[in-house]
Each structure stands twice: as structure tokens, then as C-alpha cells.
Amino acid sequence: MSAGAPILPEGKSETGDVMLNARLVLLSALMIGAAASSAAESERSLQVEIQSPSAGFTVEDGATNIEVEGIASAIGGVRYLDIMFVMDTSGSLRSSDPQDYRSLGAIGLIENLSPKSDIKIGVVSFDKKSDLAQPMTSSREHVINTLKLLPRSGSTNLAAGIDAAVAELERNGRPGSSRVIMLFTDGMSSKNKAYDAAVEATKLGITIQTLMLGTSNKGSKILDTIAWATGGSFLPVADPALLPEAFLNLRTTGVDSVTLSVNGAVPVPARLAGGTFAASLPLEVGENRIVAFATSLDGETKESSITVNVRDTSCAALEVTAMNDGRPAVSLNDRSVEIVVDASRSMWGQIDGVSKMQIAKETLEDVSYWLPADIDLALRAYGSASASE
């Protein structure tokens, strides 16, 4: 067996025998495709990356809290995340999910994705045939609008939905990205065709996460096997009202948890959504080393770190620079001095009831009093202004 081939589970559940038989059906096909997918499988080790703030970022407002965001994945790269929602639109959903929690769940997941992560999303709807309802796009608003308009009619053809999503990921998926299909259905379909589609996804390094509304043993067997074969997870939901929570709970990129810590402090659990993570951390004046520690569903661990600098702005900062013919002078004997003062909006903040600007003015008056009368003196103020100022 190659290193990238799936390993059969040792234990069995109540339906363990039928699940095992279904997985054995796929095993030979997966072994045949293992050579074709070896490059993609080699990338399937846990990776984690903090994407915001960027390394070396400087905070000017003194001690503060900052939102730390990034991507963690055990199924591909972390620079990009490419997601295809494959949504059942069969007529049975009118009775099994009359409030359309199916769409609400998918929309909730999208709304919880890190806004600063580079993610492209597409939507395939399927009943007896498939439709590329939304080609892959970085516009989450477009995807949400598409999900709101999904129909509910026809029968269920899992293979058609998976094949359409795989084709779109081949066309528009990005090299080095984590590629994942979020497959939702409330019904059963042709087992063999669905398994064939799963094999094709595996060859391309695409993970399929499966979510089923209902309690069908046959449907559960098919979806659990598809998820297992592609390195994904299967989650059954009996109550449609629980679908929004279920979409969020699916470990989209095979990551179980991410914690964040700063300067060795107690780690803070990050919020996970669709492979992205986020948490707010307190920063202190000076250098702050932020560490993201990820754990995969298989127990693998990996960490990533960045350094963020925080400057102390608790008092007015003055920089006195001696100039000589436009070049810094080494002493006042060059008879030229330029005083540079921060005139930004933050200077109107107060210290013990007195504005920083007033403190700066009084300091400048004291400095100028002691300067020689024949010295060349210049004053430079710097800052930024908004369009309304």
C-alpha cells in the first residue's frame, strides 16, 4: 500500500460491517489512482499560517487588542482555500427542510470565514442533473445570493453534483490551495456512480466533506464512504434546525483545533470556520511573538509564528534633528536645527487632562529658549488627514 492510500479502520460501529464492505469496494479503485494522485497526497500534511496581521506589522496606538486570522489545513496548502458547495435541490427538501435551513447553514459558514483569508467559493446545485449555479469567485456576497435562490425539485444524483464540482475546481482551482467540496443531501443516490466520482476527486487531491439530513442507513453508508475515501468527515443531522450548527462544526480542512498565544502566555482557543481561524489577542508595548498551534483530526500538530511591534504613544514624541545642507549634522556647532513634531489626530489625546499637543507646544517653547540666537531653526510637522479634514 502506498503512503497516500487510505487506511482501513480497526474498529466497527453498529453499521461497521456494511461500512467496511463499502470501503473495500473503493479500495482497489483508490489503489489504482494512487500513483496519479501522489503529488497531491504529498501535500497532505498539516500546515498553519497566520495571514493577518502580517509579519513585522507595527501598531502605533500603544497596548491594544488585535484580531489574529489565518488558515490551517491538513488537506493542502494554506495560502489559498478553494471551496465548492454541492447542494441537493431535490423536491424532497420541501418536506424534510421546509424552512430551508440547508441554505441558511451554508450562508452561516461563509459569513464566519475569516474576511482577510484568500478564499474562492463556488456553488453546484443538483437534483437528477447538476448545474454550476455560481462559478468560483472571491465575492462572498455573490455566493450568498446564489444560495438564497436555490430551488427544490427533482430527484437526487450525487455523482452529477460531485462531477460538476470537480470540473470547476480543475478549471479555476489554484495551485497549492486546499480544495474541498461541501456536499449536502437529504436522499440516496446511485452508489457506484457516486463512488466513481469520489475516486476522481481523490486523484486530484480534493477532499469531500459530507452532510446528510435524515436517518437513512443506506444514505449514511454512501456519504460516510465518500468522505472516508477522500480524507473528509461525515456528519448526519436528524433535525433540519440543527443544520446551521452542523455546517460550522464540519472540520472543513481536517483541523480539529487552533490555539493562539502571545509571548508565551496561556493559549487562547481560536474560532474555526471552513478552515480559517480567528481570535483576539492582547498586545503589550514592545515586541510581541504570536504563535498559532494547530492540531489535525489525526493528532498531528504544527505551529506558525509572527512578530508584531507595538510603539508607546503614551506621551508626545519629539525628534530633534540637526541638519547641514540637507544632511544630518553631528552637533549644534553646524548652526542648523530642524525640529520634527507629530501633528496627527492622536496628539489631541490627553494625559492627566492636558492634550499631547499642548504638552508638545510647551516642550518646544522650553527647547527654543535655550537655543543660540544665531542658529538656523526649522519646524516640520507631520501627520495624515482624512478627506473630511
Rank of each mutant, 00 (worst) to 15 (best):
S257V: 00
G187Q: 08
L281Y: 12
M188E: 13
A292L: 03
L250V: 15
S220V: 00
S261A: 12
T253D: 15
T185E: 09
A227I: 04
A198F: 02
A194K: 06
A198Q: 06
I222Q: 02
A265H: 04
R174K: 02
T230Q: 06
E287H: 11
G176R: 10
G176C: 07
D186E: 12
K193A: 15
G187Y: 10
V291W: 06
V285Y: 10
N263D: 15
L223F: 04
R271I: 03
T210V: 07
L211D: 09
L235D: 13
D224T: 08
L250T: 14
E245M: 08
T225C: 01
M212G: 15
M188P: 00
A194M: 05
S189Y: 13
G219M: 07
G286D: 09
Q209C: 06
G231M: 02
P175Y: 01
F234N: 10
V262K: 01
Q209A: 10
A270M: 01
T230N: 03
I206D: 11
D256V: 01
K191M: 12
E245H: 12
V266W: 00
K221H: 00
L211S: 06
L223R: 03
G214E: 09
I222G: 05
A194S: 15
V285N: 14
E287L: 12
E200F: 01
L250Y: 08
A273Y: 06
L211G: 13
G219P: 14
N288P: 05
L281C: 07
A279S: 12
L243Q: 09
V262T: 11
L248W: 01
A241N: 10
G205Q: 14
T207F: 05
G187K: 05
I206W: 05
N288A: 02
G264V: 01
L183H: 09
F293Y: 11
V266Y: 06
S190N: 15
P282D: 10
G274P: 13
T207D: 11
K193T: 15
P244K: 07
T259R: 15
T225R: 00
N288Y: 00
F247A: 05
A227R: 00
N249H: 14
P267M: 04
P240G: 05
K218N: 14
E287R: 13
E200T: 12
P240D: 13
F184R: 03
L211T: 13
A273W: 13
F234L: 03
V258T: 09
A238P: 09
N217V: 11
V285E: 15
F234R: 10
M182G: 04
V180C: 07
D224P: 00
G274W: 05
K203P: 14
V255C: 08
L250Q: 13
V285S: 09
G264T: 01
F234V: 02
G187V: 01
V258A: 11
T215G: 08
A292C: 06
L213P: 07
L183Y: 08
P240K: 06
N288E: 03
T253H: 10
G275L: 00
S216A: 05
I181H: 00
V255H: 07
A278N: 09
V266N: 12
P236C: 10
D224M: 02
V255K: 02
A198P: 14
T225E: 05
N192K: 09
N263Y: 06
S233W: 01
G214N: 10
